[in-house]
Amino acid sequence: MIELYILLIFMIIGAIIAIQVKDLLSSVVAVGAVGLGLSIVFLILKAPDVAITQLVVEILALIILIRATLKKDLPFSPTGRWFLNTLIAIVFVGTFLTVACKAITDLPQFGYPAMRVAKIYLEKGLPMTGATNLVSSVILDFRAYDTLGEATVLFTAVIGVLTLVRKVGRKKEGKTIKEEDE
C-alpha cells in the first residue's frame, strides 16, 4: 500500500502548486497532473471502470479549461485585507479538518468495508442480470433511477451552456453579427 501513500502525497503537492502558482495555464496543467494521479489511484484501488472514466474526463476537462484561459493571463494583484482574509480562510479550514478527523474514526477500518447492500449484488448480480461487469449491472439495472437522474442533470447542464453562449438577441448597433441557427 506504500504506492498509494506516495501517489496521494504527489496529488497533494500538485494541488498546492495548482492553487499557489500565479500563471493560470500552469495552474490548469497542475490540476491535470492531480487528475491523472487520481486515475492511477483508482486503478490501484481495483476500480477499472472509474479509472477509465476519470482518465478521459480529465483530458476533456483540461481541454475546456485551457480553452478558457488561453491568452487571458492577468497579473496577480493582492490588494487590501490580505491578512484578515487568509486568517478567516485558515480558521474555517482548520475547523473543518478538526471535525472531519473526529468523524472518520467512526468509519470502518480501511480495507474492511461494511458491505450490507453489496452482498446481495455480489451474490445475485450474475443470475439476475446476466452482466458480468457488476458496476454496469448496478448502474443500469439495480439502480437505474440514479442514472436517469444523472441523464437529467447532464441534459440541464448542456441546455445551460448552450443558453449562456448563444448569439441570438445580442445585436449591437453599427455591427452586423452573423446569426447561426441554434
Binding site: 471502470d49 477509465i52 446476466g130 452482466a131 458480468t132 461487469n133 449491472s137 448502474i139
Partner: peptide, 8 residues
C-alpha cells in the same frame, strides 16, 4: 460495457 470495464 457489460462484460469488461467501461460502459456508456
Amino acid at each position: 460495457g457489460h462484460v469488461s470495464p467501461g460502459g456508456g
